[in-house]
Design a binder for these strands. Structure first.
Lengths: 260, 260
DNA sequence: CTAAAGGTTAACGTTGCGTCAAGGTCAAGA
DNA sequence: TCTTGACCTTGACGCAACGTTAACCTTTAG
């Protein structure tokens, strides 16, 4: 009472190629092999195959499935871990959808694809990797959660504040003020306060009494601004960006201990 | 004022390998290539790279990104399609999570991985492909939505009804009744009514007055039962499954026009 | 006897790079 | 000047899970 590849494939709802693949990687061996090389599957193989397919539909990888089936006891833990992973994926997707929606709206409205600029409410998608690299994995997560948790009015207010700060920087830069001038240092102070309002940043931690490397953070941020041509483009070319950077560096040197 | 691979990679928050990849597939060519073969990137390239990375974070594929960037006008449509796709993915994930959760609970409670059998509330994951193949893509979707939309009590009731039907079939098969006996035909009627309660099936459409191929559907379902050893195992071996199949076929022949 | 149906192994294609491997180039110190 | 060491280059394999030819036997039905 054995079945051929095609037969068992149809019974279980899969393809013969899949069965050969599973044979190849050792996940499911045929119960018997004919002299002609044909694969034959018996009852036990079918049951195992169905379990494999069930677990696969749940999204588990083949190695994970093998583990579950071979050490029956691990099933619970494996499924638990998998569930956790699925939930993270779900979160990621939700954020992505949100981003796409906003981008789509921006495109519909403005036109240009990359209309969102640096100060337009802290473009947190753009600097994700950089932020994570330099100031820890969860800094971005916190900032992101904070932003997503705001209502539309709050977001508008924040954007307004950001834009105001940005245009003041531009005005100062174009007026030819020096980076260590009072005007520039006042702007630097506002910028730092602005940063402090964003949870997850070292600036926020510093405001709360903790002592991260706020000096390095502020200085580094200035360098990021100069390095980013979108920023320079909006703030009067490289000279404008350099002005912001210098002002921030000087402010940081004057007001913060040298790191950690 | 050009940048080397490493430099531009850091500026944009990616790696040199990625840049070489993009060069290879023609997504982003260097602005200039040195006599030594070195790649150098200018301002325009950096802007394009940043757009690429932004779109990538939104989850678009590289070919799609190329299309968006090269035919600026398509951006809106491309993003719209992408959003749609993301939402479907989200749906899929949600269903998967639900399945994993239920399976996990079943494992915690009962133990055996594949405790869910055929009639245990219509195992809709198991026959997905088959159902889609034979009776259209959205039949499964409708049935699935219906099932997921039920409350726990409703589900329990449904399971109860299903189990009752199943055990009645078993009893009839084991009593040695003929497939065309009154008893068997009564069971067939109940089975068809049971099927009618599941939205998306041809049986449901038929109940609503539409005329899909309900005869083929009912008959085919019977064949599926026989082909499935899990079914036969639970219903008294192949003879029991054959009994069900025959009874259904006879019932279908007697009560439904021959298809479409 | 022949053709159709079904079986076999072998090997490339898919997605987006990470990761060696082997070897030029360039700026700077001994 | 020679030697590091850092950075550059072009291949080419690896990953996940099969789909899809390709080229070639075996079994089965007519």
């Amino acid at each position: 009472m054995d079945w051929s590849v095609q037969q068992i494939a149809k019974l279980a709802g899969t393809t013969s190629r899949t069965l050969r693949h599973y044979d190849e990687i050792g996940l499911l061996k045929p119960s018997r092999t004919g002299d002609n090389g044909y694969r034959y599957y018996g009852h036990a193989a079918l049951v195992r195959l169905q379990r494999i397919l069930l677990l696969r539909e749940l999204g588990l990888g083949l190695p994970a499935i093998a583990e579950v089936l071979d050490h029956e006891s691990d099933a619970e833990k494996a499924l638990g871990r998998h569930l956790e992973w699925l939930r993270q994926e779900q979160d990621r997707l939700a954020r992505q959808i949100d981003s796409v929606r906003r981008t789509l709206e921006a495109v519909k409205g403005g036109g240009e694809i990359m209309a969102e600029k640096m100060f337009d409410g802290f473009d947190h998608t753009r600097y994700q990797e950089e932020v994570e690299d330099r100031w820890g994995k969860d800094a971005y997560a916190k900032g992101d959660a904070w932003w997503r948790g705001m209502g539309a009015e709050e977001k508008d207010a924040w954007k307004q504040r950001s834009r105001q700060l940005g245009s003041d920087w531009i005005a100062a830069a174009q007026s030819g003020a020096a980076a260590d001038s009072d005007e520039a240092q006042q702007l630097a102070r506002r910028q730092v306060e602005w940063l402090r309002a964003i949870p997850g940043t070292p600036a926020a931690a510093h405001a709360a009494g903790s002592n991260g490397d706020i000096r390095g953070y502020v200085t580094g941020l200035g360098e990021m601004y100069v390095a980013d041509p979108r920023f320079s483009a909006n703030y009067g070319g490289e000279s404008g960006a350099a002005f912001v950077r210098d002002a921030l560096r000087i402010y940081a040197e004057r007001h913060f201990q040298s790191g950690r």
